[in-house]
Computed example of a mutant assay.
Amino acid sequence: MGLLKELHAAKKKSSMGSGKVVFFKYLEDIEEALNQGYTAMDIWSLLNKKGELKIKYNQFSVYVRKYIKEKKYE
């Protein structure tokens, strides 16, 4: 397979927004873990190590703030 084909295939696999989809898949579990005292870093590390969540911690923490922590103050 040529380099361009490989690059195209790799880009297709990691489509934009897939991290957010996985985050929402685990949203209730993430929220419960945070409520039980686990840190966002603990949660991200586990999901990342399992290969479930392929976003950087920085983006994960943005999602936590936006969709979990800010929700509590509405």
Rank of each mutant, 00 (worst) to 15 (best):
K12F: 02
A33E: 06
L34N: 04
S18K: 15
R65F: 02
K11H: 09
D29C: 08
G19R: 07
Y38R: 14
E32F: 04
L4A: 05
M16V: 13
F60N: 01
A9R: 15
G19A: 08
V22Q: 06
D29L: 05
Q59I: 05
V64E: 03
L7H: 00
L34W: 05
L7T: 00
V64C: 02
K69S: 12
D42V: 15
V62F: 01
K54W: 03
N48R: 07
L34V: 13
K69F: 03
L47F: 09
L27S: 06
E6N: 08
S45G: 03
V22I: 13
S18E: 12
H8E: 15
Y38A: 12
K5W: 09
G2P: 14
K50R: 10
K54C: 01
K12V: 10
M41C: 08
L53D: 00
Y57T: 02
R65G: 03
K5T: 10
V62K: 03
K5V: 13
H8K: 15
R65M: 07
N35V: 05
A40F: 15
L7Y: 04
M16Q: 10
K49T: 15
W44Q: 11
G51D: 01
K69M: 11
G19Y: 08
Y57Q: 14
V21L: 10
Y57V: 05
S18M: 07
G51Y: 03
V64H: 02
I55W: 03
N35Q: 07
M41N: 14
Y63N: 03
K66I: 06
E74Q: 11
N58H: 02
K56V: 15
L7M: 02
V22Y: 07
S45T: 12
I55F: 00
E6R: 14
E52P: 00
D42A: 08
L4F: 12
R65H: 06
L4V: 04
Q36H: 10
